[in-house]
């Protein structure tokens, strides 16, 4: 140990041992690093803000009640998104009706009945693999299985086929969020239920599930909002470029082999060379983003309420 003389260096202390800390140089690096990381964050936010502002300024002028309620047209000033909007709602219904029971049921099965079993492990690995598969591949699955093999049931390239395809796409997300929500319910609640002589299912249904439902709902809404923004898979399944009529909300309507949805409509309008169509594409984007914003806000509000209750 070197002797220390505090007076040797003003208020600072003398260097001990064989060190050259060079603090000033290190602080300079610190400062640079900090500035760069803030700059990265702000540039990302700025670009995304420019995107939104650009879309809003292009799209708002054309936004009107007529635009919302009119069918598409070959003339941009007459075109509207009513069929596409209803198509999206129909897709949402089919996707939700098939994905929610499947996803929540699977989640309950894996978390409450098959925990640590070999089957659960296989399904777990399978699910994380599925999560990385590009959505367009799901489109090809839907095209082959729902639109072609099961054509007698689905009506071919229909809302049915597209909705089921999207359901498979978001199934992993719903399963994972169901499991996470169930995992968050303390085990003591299960023990208490079982100790009273209830079966596992009674315990889950009466005691565990009600506590997990806000979390499950949040995950499900986020998954559904992802589904209705998806474009690639439903193009592949066969959304048509020009559908001037709104879908009929019936089994027959959903089996109609011609349908459209908002993202498809947007895609088509962007693809046109005329600038007037670009402007209404922006308007349609605003409508789509509004729908997504409502869904996401609901999910976040639910999550916050859920977290503050715990």
């Amino acid at each position: 140990m070197n002797p220390i003389d505090p007076q040797a260096q003003g208020l600072g202390l003398p260097e001990t041992g064989n060190f050259k800390p060079q603090l000033e140089r290190r602080y300079k690096f610190d400062q640079i690093f900090k500035i760069i990381s803030w700059a990265a964050t702000f540039s990302a936010i700025a670009v995304l803000a420019i995107l939104l502002i650009g879309v809003l300024s292009e799209g708002i002028p054309k936004l009107s009640l007529e635009f919302l309620t009119a069918p598409p047209s070959r003339k941009a000033e007459q075109a509207g998104i009513w069929p596409a909007f209803l198509g999206t709602i129909a897709l949402l219904l089919i996707t939700a009706a098939s994905a929610i029971p499947l996803g929540v049921g699977t989640g309950i099965f894996l978390q409450e009945f098959a925990q640590d079993s070999k089957l659960a492990k296989v399904i777990e690995i399978n699910i994380s693999n599925l999560a990385a598969v590009p959505s367009i591949i799901y489109g090809m699955l839907g095209l082959f299985v729902f639109a072609r093999l099961l054509e007698p049931m689905t009506g071919g390239r229909s809302i049915f086929s597209a909705g089921l395809t999207l359901a498979l796409l978001i199934l992993p997300v719903i399963i994972v969020s169901t499991r996470e929500s169930l995992k968050a319910v303390p085990d003591s609640i299960r023990m208490a239920g079982m100790a009273l002589g209830a079966t596992r299912w009674q315990t889950v249904r009466i005691h565990v599930l009600p506590l997990a439902i806000p979390g499950i709902l949040t995950g499900t809404i986020l998954a559904l909002s992802r589904a209705i923004g998806e474009t690639a898979p439903i193009i592949v399944v066969g959304a048509a470029a020009f559908v001037p009529f709104a879908p009929e909300f019936s089994v027959e309507g959903f089996r109609e082999p011609a349908f459209t949805a908002m993202p498809i409509q947007i895609f088509n309008w962007i693809s046109r060379p005329q600038e007037e169509f670009h402007a209404i594409a922006a308007s349609a984007i605003i409508v789509l983003l509004m729908v997504l914003l409502v869904m996401n806000t609901t999910a976040i509000v639910l999550r916050n309420r859920f977290q503050s209750n715990r």
Partner: peptide, 13 residues
């Protein structure tokens, strides 16, 4: 004898 919390003291050092 050096005040640890005086401005001149660098906590890193």
């Amino acid at each position: 004898g050096v005040d640890l919390y005086s401005k001149a003291v660098d906590p890193t050092e």
